[in-house]
């Protein structure tokens, strides 16, 4: 079961695929990939400097608000606007804390774009495979067209959707707690 989460390690790690796959969403993933790899391979950068640059890329690649909104599902409306804002910030910090160091452990994994499909007119899924030395992990990105840019709103690793997984957790917590208690739990988590 733990295998499902193997891919989270390499959330940001892509390598330029040998044959570029046509299509704007794939191009978006591809562009980001090149930048991330360039940073990870740059030996002159310190770990902190790398993280800083990766954060900039993360913000451009992901639609943070959408990611948070989907992760909360219906409960999103139970948060007031300032709580929603804080939630977005805290959620990013949690992901950063959990995966930031893992990404820096990059060991020449290769990423191949294996397919692309349109979910609807403004939503697409880019299918990739992360190829490591002893395993291959399917990682799918769900993107949405927003102001002419494709932004990621969900990552599906080994068939497990990150957003759905968080939604189950938040739902469980919010069934027993108030939104402000949830925010408090998240604050403690990122400390």
């Amino acid at each position: 079961m733990k295998r499902c989460f193997v891919g989270l390690i390499v959330l940001f790690v892509f390598v330029f695929p040998f044959t570029a796959y046509a299509g704007a969403p794939s191009d978006a993933i591809n562009d980001t990939a090149n930048k991330v790899i360039a940073i990870l391979k740059n030996k002159s950068l310190s770990a902190a400097a790398k993280k800083e640059r990766l954060e900039v890329i993360y913000k451009r690649m992901f639609d943070e608000v959408e990611l948070s909104r989907f992760s909360l599902g219906r409960n999103w409306k139970r948060l007031n606007p300032s709580q929603q804002q804080e939630f977005v910030q805290l959620f990013r910090k949690i992901l950063e804390k959990a995966y930031g160091d893992k990404i820096l452990e990059y060991k020449d994994e290769k990423v191949k774009i294996t397919g692309e499909r349109m979910i609807s007119a403004d939503r697409a899924e880019v299918q990739t495979k992360v190829i490591g030395s002893s395993k291959e992990i399917p990682v799918f990105y769900r993107l949405r067209l927003k102001d002419g840019e494709w932004k990621v709103y969900d990552v599906v690793i080994e068939n497990v959707s990150l957003v759905q997984n968080y939604r189950a957790q938040f739902k469980d917590i919010l069934a027993k707690n108030t939104p402000s208690q949830l925010i408090e739990t998240l604050r403690k988590k990122v400390q």
């Binding site: 079961m1 733990k2 295998r3 499902c4 989460f5 193997v6 989270l8 390690i9 949690i94 992901l95 804390k97 959990a98 995966y99 893992k102 080994e158 068939n159 497990v160 959707s161 759905q164 997984n165 968080y166 189950a168 957790q169 938040f170 469980d172 917590i173 739990t185 998240l186 988590k189």
Partner: peptide, 26 residues
């Protein structure tokens, strides 16, 4: 796969629910 479970736990707000949901989805 040393580190996978650690990553799951680190990323989860409630690791038990996270694992249960991951299992169901998978």
């Amino acid at each position: 796969r040393i580190g996978d479970y650690e990553a799951l736990k680190e990323a989860a707000i409630d690791p038990y629910v996270a694992l249960r949901n991951a299992y169901a989805q998978y």
